[in-house]
Lab assay of single mutants.
Amino acid sequence: MATADDFKLIRDIHSTGGRRQVFGSREQKPFEDLVDLGWLKRSSVDSRATHYQITERGTSAAL
């Protein structure tokens, strides 16, 4: 179930172009929650960072 923080984060991601790069596993937790909701997808993972991209469902949630 989505929380107020989830909606705040997806709106922030949407307003800044729909993509986010995250460093460190602790910082990934809120983004992984949005992946579980179907609002974000992991577009790539490298040794230092994970890249996320907003989905259509995420765009709808952000509006």
Rank of each mutant, 00 (worst) to 15 (best):
A4E: 13
T16H: 10
A49L: 10
D12W: 10
S15M: 13
Y52F: 04
D6C: 07
Q53R: 08
A2D: 03
E56H: 09
F7W: 12
G24D: 11
I10S: 00
S43F: 14
R19H: 15
D12Y: 08
P30G: 05
A62M: 03
G18M: 02
H14W: 14
L34P: 00
T59E: 10
R42W: 04
D5C: 11
V22P: 03
A4S: 10
D6F: 06
F23Q: 11
L63E: 08
T3E: 04
T3I: 04
A61L: 04
F7S: 03
L37R: 07
D36V: 14
V35R: 03
L63T: 09
R57G: 07
E27P: 09
T55G: 01
V45W: 12
S44C: 12
V45P: 06
K41R: 13
D5V: 07
Y52P: 00
Y52K: 00
K41H: 12
S15K: 12
V35G: 02
G38H: 04
G24P: 05
A61I: 09
L40K: 00
L40Y: 00
V22L: 04
G18T: 02
D33M: 14
G17N: 07
T3Y: 05
G18A: 02
F7E: 04
R20S: 05
Q53Y: 11
Q53G: 04
D46V: 07
F23D: 08
L9Y: 03
A2W: 06
Q53W: 09
I54L: 05
F7L: 10
T16E: 10
S47F: 10
I54W: 01
Q53P: 01
V22Q: 03
I54Q: 02
P30R: 10
G17S: 06
G58R: 00
P30H: 07
G18Y: 02
G17D: 06
A2P: 14
R19W: 14
L40F: 00
A2M: 05
W39H: 00
T50N: 07
S43R: 08
S25Q: 14
G58W: 02
L37D: 01
D12M: 08
I54M: 06
S15Q: 13
Q28K: 11
L37H: 05
R11Q: 10
K29M: 07
G58L: 00
F23T: 13
R48V: 14
V35N: 02
T55S: 04
L63F: 06
D6W: 06
M1I: 13
A2L: 04
R42K: 14
D6E: 07
G38A: 04
T16K: 11
K8D: 09
G58A: 01
T55K: 01
G17I: 03
E56R: 09
D6T: 05
E27G: 10
D6K: 08
F23H: 11
T3Q: 06
R42N: 04
F31Y: 15
S44F: 15
H51A: 10
S44W: 15
W39P: 00
R57H: 09
K29S: 07
D33G: 10
K8G: 06
D46H: 08
G24V: 07
V35P: 00
L37V: 03
Q53S: 10
L37K: 06
A62V: 05
A4F: 10
R42A: 09
S44G: 10
L40M: 04
P30F: 05
K29P: 04
G17K: 05
K41T: 15
A2R: 04
A61R: 03
S60C: 11
K8T: 09
S15A: 14
H14F: 14
S43G: 10
D36I: 14
T50V: 14
L9V: 03
T55A: 02
A49W: 14
F31A: 02
D36W: 11
F31D: 01
S60G: 08
A62C: 05
D46P: 06
T3P: 03
K29L: 06
R11G: 05
K41V: 15
T59M: 12
I54P: 01
D12E: 14
Y52R: 00
V35H: 03
Q21W: 15
R42E: 05
A4T: 10
I10T: 01
S43T: 15
Y52S: 01
V45A: 10
V45R: 09
A62N: 02
R57L: 15
D46C: 08
D5R: 10
S25A: 13
S43D: 14
T50D: 03
G38E: 04
A49Q: 08
I13C: 01
S15R: 13
Q21F: 07
A4H: 10
W39Y: 03
S43E: 15
L34E: 00
E32Q: 10
G24W: 06
M1Y: 13
K8L: 10
Q21E: 14
F31I: 03
D36S: 14
D12R: 08
S60R: 14
D36M: 15
I10F: 02
M1T: 13
T3G: 06
I13A: 00
D6G: 05
A2S: 05
G38K: 05
S25H: 13
R20C: 09
D6P: 05
V35F: 03
R42M: 08
S47R: 07
S43A: 14
R26F: 14
F31N: 01
V45F: 11
Q28F: 06
E56K: 10
K29I: 07
E27H: 11
A62T: 03
E32Y: 05
L40C: 03
S15G: 09
R48I: 14
E27V: 07
R57V: 10
I13T: 02
S60H: 13
A62S: 04
L37P: 00
P30N: 05
E27F: 12
L34A: 02
S43I: 15
I10H: 00
S25D: 14
D12P: 00
A4Q: 11
D6I: 06
L63Q: 08
V45Y: 10
V35K: 02
G58I: 00
H14T: 03
T59A: 08
F31C: 04
H14C: 08
T55C: 02
A2Y: 06
G17V: 02
H14A: 09
R20F: 07
K8M: 11
R48K: 14
G18D: 03
V22D: 02
D12F: 09
T16P: 01
G38R: 04
D36Q: 15
R48T: 14
A49K: 08
L37C: 03
Q21G: 07
A49C: 12
L34K: 00
A61N: 04
T59W: 06
G18V: 02
R11M: 11
T50C: 08
H14Y: 15
T16I: 06
G18K: 02
T16C: 08
F23P: 08
R57A: 14
D46E: 09
A61C: 06
A61W: 04
T3M: 05
K8I: 12
V22R: 02
D46F: 05
R48E: 15
L34G: 01
T50E: 04
